[in-house]
Design a protein around this nucleic acid. Structure first.
Length: 381
RNA sequence: GGGGGUGUGCCCGAGUGGUUAAAGGGGACGGGCUGUAAACCCGUUAGCUAUGCUUACCGCGGUUCGAAUCCGUGCGCCCCCA
């Protein structure tokens, strides 16, 4: 099987179980990708990530481009060599950062100018620049440069973002040459189904044209522009139709979504891949995921609670440390608190995706989904 | 024994006559976090029969229309000299 050929191994309703190969190993879906923005999943060593069976991690072009700079990462042998992680890596293009946090960005037909969050210096990317940077960073999967519309936004604005993203998708695809690296296109369109479907059509068309001229196709698709502030659940009014409009034989990656119930529901809708800072960030802030729902470990009720965070959890944190101890660490601002909770939360989400995959393979996803929705864990998200 | 200083809400601490139920910080308590500018941000923190009332700045007494703020006195603590 060629690199990145998506093998759809089982389906259960709309839910899918698949796999694809990268130069750094196989990825089995559905999969959650821990986020390591600055070439590190905050608080985790690569060894710890391996131990919790993280299959693939995400890093960020925007941040690495600004610091330490592409040259440094490239000289270190690419991201894998630089950070000491030999498993698959996906880099986001940085489009999300440019549009969500740079208030001084300037958009023109050819590209985007933006200011560094670190020192305010002016930077400029065309889609071709972005591809060059991501190829040199050397992740296994890279994302096209796109424009992520905020929420709320006018329909006109969202439509314009769809159009720009599609034009950039075409240029990214044309500029991408690295053979052992996959390029994913990104669907935009906000909460408008027709714009979403139009966005999908544009991407499929672009891929087709590229293939017919003897060049490569997108090897998967990101679904961007959700979880940008809209009401909880609004996404699901369109997500299923969007996911299923994408080709069956390519992985579908819902970008930036990571709370447990949303993952269960999105897999139900036909999504294969996820990334999110939620498990790691909330861990550092003192929140634990559990089969009983979210737990704020700062709460006084855990002061003398010497049981594990989650009785049903098999992670190292739950195996060796009590709620009372973790509460104490968090309250004392000890870094170990964040580390232990990060281990636990990632283990929890990775395990959830693992169980989801097994349910799909057994063709029991509907029951799995229902059981989740009826469980106390579902209420809290 | 003499001289000087000081005593504020759970803690530290600002405040020297009214706009002070009392700044600020800490602690405590609660909430938030979704392609990471986040080991971060926000709120609450005297009581009550609660758009008002009561109690509060070491105790007691006084000055004043009005005192955490001024005076007297007692007590505690700190520093210097003997």
């Amino acid at each position: 099987m060629a690199l990145f050929d998506f093998s759809l191994e089982a389906t259960s309703g709309h839910a899918r179980a698949g796999s694809f190969e990268t130069a750094h190993g196989v990825v089995q879906t559905p999969v959650f990708m821990p986020v390591g923005t600055h070439a590190t999943v905050k608080g985790m060593t690569p060894g710890q990530l391996r131990a919790m069976m993280a299959q693939i991690i995400l890093s960020n072009t925007y941040h690495l481009f600004l610091r330490p700079g592409v040259e440094v990462v490239e000289a270190a042998g690419g991201l894998h060599g630089f950070m000491g992680w030999d498993g698959p890596i996906l880099t986001d293009s940085g489009g999300f950062q440019i549009f969500s946090l740079a208030d001084t960005l300037k958009l023109d037909d050819d590209g985007v100018s933006f200011r560094s969050i670190y020192d305010g210096s002016l930077e400029r990317w065309t889609p071709e620049d972005n591809m060059d940077i991501q190829q040199r960073l050397g992740a296994d999967i890279v994302m096209q440069l796109d424009q992520c519309a905020p929420y709320p936004a006018t329909r006109e604005f969202v439509a314009q973002a769809v159009d720009l993203s599609a034009r950039w998708a075409k240029r990214c695809l044309a500029a991408h040459t690295k053979e052992d690296q996959a390029l994913f296109g990104i669907v935009q369109g906000g909460m408008h189904l027709d714009l979403r479907l139009h966005s999908v059509d544009r991407l499929l068309e672009i891929g087709k044209e590229s293939v017919s001229s003897g060049r490569k196709d997108f090897q998967g698709f990101g679904i961007g522009g959700y979880s940008v502030g809209e009401d909880h659940g609004l996404m699901f009014e369109t997500l299923g139709d969007v996911a299923r409009a994408l080709p069956e034989g390519k992985p579908r990656y819902l970008m930036g979504v990571g709370n447990p119930t949303t993952l269960v529901k999105a897999v139900h809708a036909g999504v294969d891949m996820f990334d999110c800072v939620l498990p790691t960030r909330t861990a550092r802030m003192g929140t634990a995921f559990s089969s009983q729902g979210r737990m704020n470990m700062r709460n006084a009720k855990y002061t003398r609670d010497f049981g594990p965070i989650d009785e049903t959890c098999t992670c190292p944190t739950c195996a060796g440390h009590s709620r009372a101890y973790i509460r104490h660490l968090v309250k004392s601002n000890e870094m170990l608190g964040g580390i232990l909770l990060t281990i636990h939360n990632l283990h929890y989400l990775l395990g959830l995706m693992n169980r989801a995959r097994k349910a799909v393979v057994a063709d029991e996803y509907e029951a799995f989904y229902q059981a989740w929705m009826d469980s106390p864990a579902a209420n809290d998200y």
